[in-house]
Simulated assay, not measured.
Amino acid sequence: MSWLTKYVRPKIRGLLKRDVPDNLWTNCPSCHQMVLVKELRRTLNVCPHCGFHMKVPAAERFEWTFDAGSYTRIELPKVAADPLGFRDQKRYTDRLKDARAKSGLDESLVVAHGRITGYPAVVAIMAYEFMAGTMGTALGEAFVAAARLAILQRSPLVIFTASGGARMQEGILSLMQMPRTTVAVQMLKDAGLPYIVVLTDPTTGGVSASFAMLGDVQIAEPKALIGFAGPRVIEDTVREKLPEGFQRSEYLLEHGMLDMVVERKNLRETLGRVIGLLTAAPPGDVFTETLPDPEEPGSEETPLPVN
Results as ranks from 00 to 15, higher is better:
166 A>I: 09
291 L>D: 00
295 E>H: 13
152 L>S: 14
265 K>P: 01
17 K>V: 00
264 R>V: 11
19 D>L: 01
92 Y>F: 13
15 L>Y: 04
245 G>L: 06
294 P>E: 07
157 L>G: 08
154 R>T: 06
24 L>Q: 06
191 A>V: 05
160 F>Y: 15
199 L>W: 04
306 V>M: 09
3 W>R: 07
299 S>P: 01
213 M>T: 14
6 K>P: 00
144 V>G: 02
198 V>N: 08
290 T>F: 14
139 L>M: 15
216 D>H: 15
144 V>C: 05
114 G>H: 11
65 T>K: 08
143 F>W: 06
166 A>M: 09
109 L>V: 15
21 P>H: 08
268 R>P: 07
183 V>Y: 07
151 I>Y: 00
44 L>I: 14
171 G>Y: 04
30 S>R: 14
112 A>L: 10
271 L>G: 08
227 G>S: 08
103 S>K: 12
161 T>C: 04
126 M>W: 01
170 E>S: 10
186 Q>C: 09
55 K>P: 00
108 S>I: 10
261 V>C: 02
292 P>C: 11
212 A>R: 05
188 L>W: 06
207 V>W: 02
150 A>T: 02
214 L>W: 00
156 P>F: 06
208 S>D: 03
13 R>C: 01
108 S>D: 11
86 F>P: 01
163 S>Y: 15
106 D>F: 07
